[in-house]
Design a protein around this nucleic acid. Structure first.
Lengths: 193, 193
DNA sequence: GTCTATACGGGGATAGAC
DNA sequence: GTCTATCCCCGTATAGAC
């Protein structure tokens, strides 16, 4: 029964849930751990939220909103289509922590619950759609070749980001992430005219 | 104390561990679930393996070997550099299940254990290195432009694959994966001469 | 609103019989 | 080699007092 009327205690609970979901995923996060990190007692938690899924929904929704808003900041900045995409890909990130939304994709209990699943699905649908718009705009302005497929390329770019996190975590280094980003931007540069 | 001397029962345990790690990750997989899926009793499991980490190491190692061997099959096939990469990216895959190695990257307990972490790290290091070789070969043969960066592009390609899985799982559809692959191959086509 | 008590199954493993 | 018994702590709550 998550609503937006958030008290101070509830907010602390949501924040520690966000952190733990990011670090350990849904399956790896227990109510007890959430309470301890928030410095909130058992009774309080169950007073403000129905349980773990309810709390997770609040946390995931908040993270999803922030992610899209942050991206939008890059997309609406001045510059060419490719410049804005480069700014987005290269902006400051906690690369080794990975994507807080993308990681949920691997969580069987999240994917099995339609309510928890929805914000994850919508986030990526929105991201791909928005990037496709930016690319289409670049093409229409004559910045990009006519043969470039905005939708496919948008999916490629989002995939490079998500996959870059995977490579960085596997290597315990941001280097492969940066390489992957440099690589796709190099390929994209060849599409400018 | 995992070794390669594998009995029939031990093999069944390894196989069910592989499946469960793929479906639910390390944190989400219990010894009990492994035993039940393998049709093997508690005592048997602890006779053949020291415990969950030991069993996981056997499972992960086997999966990692298979993954690299499968990729090598595409890379050594006849055809141009780009053709072989396209064959690799487009080969039959269980896209919605994701990558059994890549998903471990999100598992805090796997990443925290150097022994379990190593095969994950090595798999991606090898994949990126091998793809870079294939690209460098294409460049040296004059199939690809001289300005293409083999190492960066290799990371991009592996990232597209890993990220493609994420997008597919988020959408519960293989479409974004296929789009991402088409997108990167489209960009790569512009590098051929 | 928050606290403590209580509950019940599961995770992960050990012990010893067969 | 495999089986059953047993262990202890944790996950995920519910109940009721304050």
């Amino acid at each position: 029964m998550y609503t937006d009327s958030v008290t101070y205690t509830a907010d602390r609970l949501i924040e520690s849930t966000r952190e733990l979901l990011w670090e350990r995923g849904y399956v790896g996060t227990s109510p007890k751990a959430i309470q301890q990190r928030a410095g909130v007692g058992q009774g309080s938690m169950y007073h403000h939220f129905d349980g773990k899924p309810d709390l997770a929904l609040a946390a995931i929704s908040r993270t999803a909103e922030e992610m899209l808003a942050a991206a939008e900041g890059q997309f609406t900045a001045p510059g060419t289509s490719v410049e804005r995409i480069a700014a987005y890909l290269r902006r400051e990130r906690d690369v080794l922590k990975g994507c807080p939304i993308g990681r949920l994709t691997q969580d069987p209990d999240v994917m099995a619950d339609p309510v928890l699943r929805r914000p994850v699905e919508q986030t990526f649908t929105a991201m791909r759609g928005r990037l496709a718009e930016v690319l289409a705009e670049g093409r229409d302005r004559g910045e990009l070749t006519d043969t470039l497929d905005p939708a496919a390329t948008a999916s490629t770019i989002v995939a490079v980001l998500q996959g870059g996190y995977v490579l960085a975590r596997a290597a315990d280094s941001t280097a492969p992430f940066d390489q992957a980003v440099d690589g796709v931007l190099g390929l994209l540069a060849a599409q400018t005219r």
